[in-house]
């Protein structure tokens, strides 16, 4: 009759000499199993708190970007801060939806097959795979004139997904500002896209030329014209990713149709 009592199995295992193969394997698997359990439960339990922190950080950055933009304080004070409206836009139908932007999570929508669209490989310059159908866009008007549009953009970078907000002035062709919302690029190289000094290069740059072709890009070395932004030495691939984010999201598969409608004043509220 074999011994099936787990306690005596355990004691037998402990009594084995340390150098035996069975015990070596058993200790290795037990230690890694317990460690995996501890790490994954910490990650799962703390996830909501961390996500709330990140959301607060995103909001703070959006507000900081608003505050840093030239003339923004005047526009806000004369028109009242409530004139900055946040709307959830359906990118497939190019129409404003009635989803509440405060509780809407674009990142979750981008991974859910129900609320996202696979990007055809030839259009997927930013390496994202799927694109959310709904995007949270901030629009500032004074009177009937469009003053500012803030668009969330993203792209696969060198070793992380870069998320940013791109603000366009009322002509929808001049950059009002860029703020990096989240990135995990190499500290000291690619991560320098978070530095205010680099983001300060963006305001005033032009998006597309007269033919409507998106020209704005991060170049290697120094910018030579109004469509170029200085690259960061040693961070070519991160710079390329920011370029790809702009090219993809402002193109036909991103906000292109939305911007056309806004230009024509045909986006119904």
């Amino acid at each position: 009759m074999p011994d099936l009592n787990p306690i005596s199995w355990w004691l037998k295992l402990l009594a084995l000499p340390n150098e035996s193969r069975t015990k070596t394997l058993a200790v290795a698997f037990l230690v890694s199993g317990v460690c995996a359990l501890v790490v994954s439960s910490a990650a799962v339990i703390l996830e909501p708190l961390q996500e709330a922190n990140r959301a607060a950080e995103r909001q703070a950055r959006l507000e900081a970007m608003m505050a840093a933009m030239p003339g923004m304080a005047d526009i806000l004070s004369e028109s009242g801060a409530d004139r900055l409206e946040s709307v959830v836009v359906d990118l497939n139908k190019t129409a404003v939806t009635d989803i509440d932007p405060a509780g809407f999570d674009m990142r979750a929508a981008a991974t859910d097959p129900e609320t996202s669209t696979p990007i055809p490989p030839e259009a997927d310059v930013a390496g994202l795979g799927r694109r959310t159908n709904y995007a949270v866009v901030h629009i500032l008007r004074s009177g009937d004139a469009l003053r500012l549009v803030i668009l969330p953009i993203s792209a696969a970078g060198y070793q992380s997904t870069i998320h940013a907000n791109l603000a366009l002035q009322g002509d929808l062709n001049t950059v009002a500002g860029l703020s990096i919302v989240e990135q995990g690029e190499t500290p000291g190289l690619g991560a320098r896209i978070e530095e205010p000094a680099w983001q300060a290069l963006w305001p005033g740059k032009k998006l597309a030329n007269a033919e409507g072709e998106i020209r704005l890009s991060v170049v290697r070395g120094r910018a030579t014209n109004e469509y170029e932004v200085d690259g960061i030495t040693g961070a070519t691939r991160t710079g390329n990713a920011v370029t790809e984010a702009v090219q993809f999201w402002l193109g036909d598969f991103g906000y292109g149709p939305l911007l056309d409608k806004l230009r024509a004043g045909a986006l119904d509220q």
Binding site: L14, E19, K23, T24, V27, A28, V31, S32
Partner: peptide, 18 residues
Amino acid sequence: RHIPNTIRLIVQITIIAS
């Protein structure tokens, strides 16, 4: 007393890293 000598550093680092 139960850490086999051959894998002791890996066991220590696994615990520390977790």
